[in-house]
Amino acid sequence: MLRLRVGQGLVSATDTTTVIVIKASADDVFLTCGGVAMAAELETAGADNPNLAPLDGHDHGTQLGKRYESADGAVELLCTKAGAASLAVDDIAMIIKAVKALPASD
């Protein structure tokens, strides 16, 4: 279980995926990538087994720059490096969030 905070970077233990937390839940969450818990540091994430691969059903891939939302909308992540595994909260797959475009102001 992990207490997320906005702006925090997380790495996957099973693939190359990295994310940044855009929206955090007030509670601890069970956040996985490839079915294995994500962690704040690469060393922690891959410490147990550097050759972990995504589990079946957790291997649909992540896309660079996409936002992923938990089923209840409480957690939102931004994918900063893509990979072959997929993200889940409490074993429920996170889904790509449809974005509402803002007018370009810069």
Binding site: G7, I20, I22, L64, G65, K66, L78, V99, A101, L102, A104, S105, D106
Partner: peptide, 19 residues
């Protein structure tokens, strides 16, 4: 970074776009 993440979608510009 908050400003960027809150207001811009990654790679949302077309290849012909120019500012």
């Amino acid at each position: 970074l908050s400003y960027v993440f809150d207001t811009v979608e990654f790679a949302s510009a077309g290849p012909e776009d120019a500012a």
